[in-house]
Design a protein around this nucleic acid. Structure first.
Lengths: 344, 344
DNA sequence: GTGAAAGCGCTAACAG
DNA sequence: CTGTTAGCGCTTTCAC
């Protein structure tokens, strides 16, 4: 069971490696190689189950057909769903996915980029960045390296991004609560954070307040450290539901916060939505079946992956054509369930 | 911004490429290269942010430092959690993960294996197989190619697997229900299926029956086609809860079935656990917060990934040492929640 | 119509 | 202590 290479085929057929290469790359006709020879080559290749070595080819052509995906954590269903849809699109064009988790560590992310780009020779990277500035990424852009940002925006990276309208999504969520009379709507968010996604959601919250002429009350906004969500949310909910603050509804900036909030409310012996209503950003399976089902702002995960991969493919395949280097902002969807409806 | 290679460094330092290669691979001392030269090389490499080309290196050495992971669907949280823990272990030894979804299509799986092994030159593969026989995989084994099976077993593949004790897990689940008096416990499973994991769970169900001297009643076991879970489960639940069958409890072979069962029960206007108790294989986040929280058999996803990667590393790094080619069976954990407790 | 030869970046055997 | 050389498998001129 030795490796079957282009040479193996050439030898057996008493032709040159060049010819085999040409035929197998569908350049046979172009170079006017006889049908008969072509047929023979193809047949033998099939028979020997020949697979071209990507390494050798890559070394020669400078293209690896590998694309890198860097996210905070691939175990997060949000990212793994995106990964899957990227894979689907990538496959069609013969690309393969190399997946890495940055664990929200900026230096690690940069290290991974270098690894993927220089070491593995990835033809492009899709990145949910954890940087707080575009600076470390700009050189890549300048060099024309195919890079698509997803999920999280960065100032000065106006092109090559696939994002979601976080601000509008949050606005919708909070407006819903306001409309049904919950003027004292609190927000649970991650902080301190430089993440665009998180910050835009806060803006959306404020937009809704403005729309309904409700004054911003900083006691109603709680920033939670993402490493200690459970404890801090419990603490925060205690304060929010105390008579002093008396929040009527909660908007959580992501699904983890919502889960923690629900657990906290339960532990406090209160009920959603009667004691406090809840709407969360991110829609996850859990929200359909939880007690109560949670009203949520759904992100189009499949679309994000597909659009990102399509954009990356354009960048990879079109030569330096900056024209197509666009910025895509996808809409969110409000999924109405019971957690937002006070029975009154 | 051109590529910086070993040659760039050699040129600038007026030394040979060999020397640079040696130093950068920590073979400097071994070959007695002067500290001074070594220092200079390292410094320049650092300065130029030199990253060795894996393709070139791989071509030369025959090792890519890539490991392939093939699962049914990387968007499935069960698999993405495993992927993450594989990544953690792989990283320590400088390996990278290439992830592929087979979509439960056996031929696709084989195609992916060929791609990863021959084309990408992956040093090894971790596979949750969808084959119904070991035959297509045996040649790989024979050839000594590092391959670790996870999650799903295959007859004749007694080594190089990391599995979970499905039979015992199912036995525990059903015993729990029996103990609390639910002799008429039904099972919802996927079928027809050749998957070892699924079949072993059915065996575990039967074991529990035997233990409690309950006769097997085939009306209580429903095989669901996995592409049409929702509809078929609804239909099945209808039958199971009809007076004619009158199931008191349900054991579902995976989390998808449990979710569908809960939805069905809800649609039928009945309640878990009072009208029917429920225990599911697989523990997912959802079960903690669902209405009611679901008693489940948890699989050690992190362990599976870690053990699989460790085993694979052994296979890759130890030369043909078949001695260490083991079979690992991990225990499941019963997570007791409310869905299994009839208030009576 | 077809083949020879060079070279992608790296490592390893062999010389000095 | 350091350099020369060959070659991994492939693509791509250029030559016949």
């Amino acid at each position: 069971m030795k490796k079957v290479s282009i040479g193996t085929i050439a030898e057996r057929l008493k032709v040159s490696k060049t010819l085999v290469s040409l035929v197998l790359n569908d350049k046979g006709d172009q170079f006017g190689i006889s049908k008969k020879t072509q047929e023979a080559v193809r047949k033998l290749a099939e028979q020997l189950d020949y697979q071209p070595s990507r390494m050798a080819r890559g070394l020669r052509t400078g293209r690896s057909k590998i694309i890198g995906l860097i996210v905070a954590d691939i175990a997060n269903p949000f990212y793994s769903r995106i990964a899957r849809s990227i894979e689907n699109i990538a496959e069609r064009s013969g690309y393969h996915l190399m997946v890495c988790s940055s664990d929200e560590i900026p230096e690690r992310e940069l290290q991974l980029i270098r690894l993927l780009k220089d070491s593995q020779g990835a033809d492009g990277i899709i990145l949910s960045t954890t940087q707080d500035s575009a600076a470390p990424l700009l050189p890549l852009r300048k060099a024309g390296y195919p890079l698509v940002l997803i999920d999280r925006d960065l100032p000065k990276m106006d092109k090559g991004c696939v994002l979601v309208d976080n601000r509008k999504g949050a606005y919708d969520a909070v407006s819903l609560l306001m409309k049904s009379g919950q003027r004292r709507t609190a927000m649970l968010t991650i902080g301190p954070s430089h993440l665009s996604s998180i910050n835009e959601r806060l803006e959306g919250y404020k937009d809704a307040l403005k729309k309904f002429s409700v004054k911003f009350d900083k006691n109603l906004v709680k920033e939670i450290a993402f490493e200690r969500i459970r404890d801090e949310v419990y603490q925060a909910m205690h304060e929010l539901l105390s008579p002093a603050v008396d929040a009527q509804a909660i908007f959580t900036a992501n699904n983890h916060l919502a889960v923690a909030a629900m657990e906290a409310v339960r532990r406090m012996g209160k009920r959603i939505p009667d004691d406090v209503a809840l709407v969360s950003f991110d829609d996850v399976d859990l929200f359909r079946l939880s007690d109560p089902p949670v009203t949520a702002i759904a992100q189009p995960m499949q679309d994000i992956g597909e659009k990102a991969m399509e954009l990356l493919l354009e960048m990879i395949e079109k030569p330096k054509n900056k024209a197509e280097n666009k910025r895509i902002v996808l809409p969110t969807t409000l999924v109405l369930r019971e957690s937002s409806l006070k029975k009154k």
